[in-house]
Design a protein around this nucleic acid. Structure first.
Length: 493
RNA sequence: CGGGGUGUAGCGCAGUUGGUUAGCGUGCCACGUUCGGGACGUGGAGGUCGGAAGUUCGAAUCCUCUCACCCCGACCA
């Protein structure tokens, strides 16, 4: 099948086709019968769980608490904040009835027309409205602030077009919602959470990201400012991997959330929201994978080390088993998750290929030859390099190797991004560089009109205004109007 | 919603000028030989050919309707 997969990747000029095929075969996920929804199989879910656990810890370090809110939102809640509803109205699934009955014509069940809801319910596309309706009851004084809440949940958006992991109709995510006494504090929180995302992406996912601010056109519905982390996939396209929003007092006003401040005056609270989703799994796959399958960063791999025995007879296997047992124990003591696969119903070659497809960072192989020489074969998934290493101190060797792999795949991704990031000053340069694929830093006159025109002409959008960008006088490539600084353009998923 | 395409075994596909009992690869089951890079042999199980209606002596194949999925666009994390 390895050959089959390689042929497939060569054939597939379309990147998403590549990983669709690959990932399904790697047991990560499959499309369900429901349009655009996804089934995440156990191995894929284990990766998501690791990501979830890690992020949750990071959120809690910033004082955030978890809570849970209802799946169904009364339709009227969505009428409160005009910009917000405008952003989601077109993709909401609506619950209209609460009962089924037997089909009078005898075939299965039908919706009972008698059971129509007085007010329709919306399946949450995001929870701002229902959460702010609740916050109203939780907040009355500045002593109740800041209120820092996060929810892990599923949301549903009836997308016109779906794409596995990147844009499924139903997806898992976390959404953080905070309320603050001052504008400055809220704005700082939005930026703080963006930094948490960036740290998670780089340190754990080994995915380098550009942090920045969205333009008005790309801003979240109802936000005053949207911060983003943008990652570059192997084909040079950008993937928005997480966002954090400064919502001003819009939601507080829409849901009438007021508090008495320390000067004994009534004021609306200031808000943020921030979220990342299972799209991050798409980012992980598309950043690191190669023709042999997934490449997982050691920090997120459900299994970090797999050990495969080579033997001919049950007696030989028993010898290998005995030799491997202490290695497994010692690796576990170092906090390394290890699987010893001595299943007798698959041949070693099959196991090699299978664990490569699944992205296990390190593979150890032990056979009679090794036992004789007191060595073990070590293969690292990121480079596919094999070497024979002495068994003495193998555990520390593996621990170091895992760190090395984590760093190496990050560096590799960063190098790719740097090599595919360029500056353009003229329209010709810009078009050429966008065509080549990658990020292009270019001047922009700051108008939505120009931004849309560029999108229309090149399919490239402003991914963000990077936080580390510096003032640089220039002229817009298209309009010739003055530009304050360069912004990041790219085609995106 | 517009343009293009595909529905045949778990997965990938062939078969479509109408003609026996619908086939190939892979996977699955049994036995044997194998086992340091996806093994091999022998035997076996698995299908209302997406669905409905029609034409015909006869339909996977032709006609009509319908459903689902994929790709490209508009929408979006």
């Amino acid at each position: 099948m390895a050959k089959e997969l390689k042929d497939l990747t060569k054939r597939a000029d379309n990147y998403s086709q590549w990983y669709n095929e690959l990932v399904i075969k790697a047991d990560l996920a499959e499309q369900s019968a429901v349009r655009g929804c996804m089934v995440i199989k156990p191995y894929g879910y284990a990766i998501w769980e690791k990501m979830q656990r890690q992020m949750d810890d990071m959120f809690k370090e910033t004082g955030v608490q978890n809570a849970y809110f209802p799946l169904l939102i009364p339709k009227s809640f969505l009428s409160r904040e005009a910009d917000h509803v405008k952003g989601f109205a077109k993709e909401c699934a609506v619950v209209t009835h609460y009962r089924l009955k037997n089909d009078p014509n005898g075939k299965g069940v039908v919706v009972d027309p008698e059971a129509r809801l007085e007010e329709e319910l919306i399946i949450r596309p995001t929870s701002e409205t229902i959460i702010w309706n609740t916050f109203k009851n939780w907040i009355s004084s500045y002593r109740d602030l800041p209120l820092l809440i996060n929810q892990w949940a599923n949301v549903f958006r009836w997308e016109m077009r779906t794409r596995l992991f990147l844009r499924t109709a139903e997806f898992l995510w976390q959404e953080g919602h905070t309320a603050h006494a001052t504008k400055e504090e809220a704005q700082a929180k939005a930026e703080e959470m963006l930094k948490v995302y960036a740290k998670f992406a780089e340190k754990y996912m080994a995915v380098p990201v550009v942090t920045g601010v969205k333009t008005a056109n790309e801003r979240f519905a109802g936000a005053l400012e949207t911060y983003t982390i943008e990652a570059m996939m192997q084909d040079g396209k950008a993937l928005q991997s997480g966002t954090s929003h400064f919502l001003g007092q819009n939601f507080a006003k829409a849901f009438d959330v007021k508090f008495i401040n320390s000067e004994n005056q009534l004021d609306h609270v200031w808000a943020t929201s921030w979220g990342v989703s299972t799209r991050l799994m798409g980012a992980l796959i598309m950043t690191h994978s190669d023709d042999n399958g997934l490449v997982l960063p050691p920090k997120l791999a459900p299994i970090q080390v797999v050990i495969i025995p080579i033997y001919r007879s049950p007696e030989q296997l028993a010898t290998v088993d005995a030799k491997v047992a202490p290695i497994v124990e010692n690796l576990k003591k170092l906090g390394i998750s290890v699987k010893y696969d001595n299943a007798d119903n698959k041949r070693p070659g099959f196991k090699f290929a299978d664990y490569e497809l699944k992205g296990i960072p390190v593979r150890l192989v032990l056979g009679a030859r090794d036992i004789e020489n007191n060595t073990i074969e070590v293969m690292r998934r990121d480079t596919l390099e094999k070497e024979s290493v002495t068994l003495d101190g193998i555990e520390d060797y593996v621990a170091r190797l895992l760190d090395d792999i984590q760093q190496n795949i990050y560096n590799k991704a960063l190098q790719l991004r740097l090599s595919k990031t360029s500056k353009a000053d003229t329209w010709e340069e810009f078009v050429q560089q966008i065509e080549n694929g990658g990020f292009v830093l270019a001047p922009w006159d700051g108008t939505t009109e120009t931004e849309l025109k560029i999108k229309e002409l090149t399919k490239a959008t402003i991914r963000c205004i990077p936080l580390d960008s510096v003032d640089e006088a220039g002229v817009d490539m298209l309009t010739g109007k003055p530009s304050q600084r360069r912004v990041l353009f790219a085609r995106n998923y």
